[in-house]
Design a protein around this nucleic acid. Sequence first.
DNA 1: AAAGATTGACTCATCAATCTTT
DNA 2: AAAGATTGATGAGTCAATCTTT
Lengths: 144, 144
Amino acid sequence: MNEMPDGVSGQAAAVLHAAGVLQAHIESRLAEVGLSLPKLMALRALSQAGESLPLSQLADRLACVKSNITQLVDRLESDGFVTRAADPNDRRSRLAVMTAAGRYAFEKGSMLHDQAEREALGGLDATEVRQLAALLTKLGSHHV
Amino acid sequence: MNEMPDGVSGQAAAVLHAAGVLQAHIESRLAEVGLSLPKLMALRALSQAGESLPLSQLADRLACVKSNITQLVDRLESDGFVTRAADPNDRRSRLAVMTAAGRYAFEKGSMLHDQAEREALGGLDATEVRQLAALLTKLGSHHV
DNA sequence: AAAGATTGACTCATCAATCTTT
DNA sequence: AAAGATTGATGAGTCAATCTTT
């Protein structure tokens, strides 16, 4: 009473499961420097943009909703990794500005992230990684 | 100043991104019957176990923490999909019992889930799905 | 009116602490 | 003391409503 009657059934679960394992692994490494994956992504976006961005643009780059960014920046601010500043060009807007501690956390976090990624993908050889990337790209870009 | 100096760097992001797309697609379909993926998984576990389970066993099967199950069952209960009942074998324990509405939601939800999965995997042929499954299994079971 | 940010309410996950029953 | 469940705090995401500034 437990067989899978469906052909493709279960592959979504495999993707979701693999992603869960991967994410947990990376997050556990990042926790060493007080970072989470969303925090690291935010710091990366700021770093790439020259250390500061209006919150709305940060939301665009992280592809998430505005209110989420407000709260994420709240947390980063209480961590001491970013500060809020006035936007000289638009008085409605607020800038998220990376601090020295944020810069440091980003550099440490980036190294930990890459290291964790190599560890997690360590079971696959170069060909398999290429195959996986190709399949996932195809899957991820397949808009119904 | 933006090149990838690392060989494998970025593949984790691809896995996470693909999982995000997949999950969003499935969740949007499930929303039609008032279900989320965690809710469907819980109903599936109950269904497979004969319509009722102690909360702790439900937590084991869903591989998550006990307090999470308490809240998930709270939500399912307020949806009218499960009820809590006393466990005749252990007075400390509480049973989550599927209701008629829960049974119906589970059947509808399962069909929507499988349909959404086929849609999402529709860009891949049978060989590619098999390859993907093999790679993800290898990746997911690679314990550091 | 529209844009930028915030606040509040919700789902989902974790951990830590608590309460009851064994 | 240990097991089962709950509660509370926190992180991360969503949406809807609100407030200020343009």
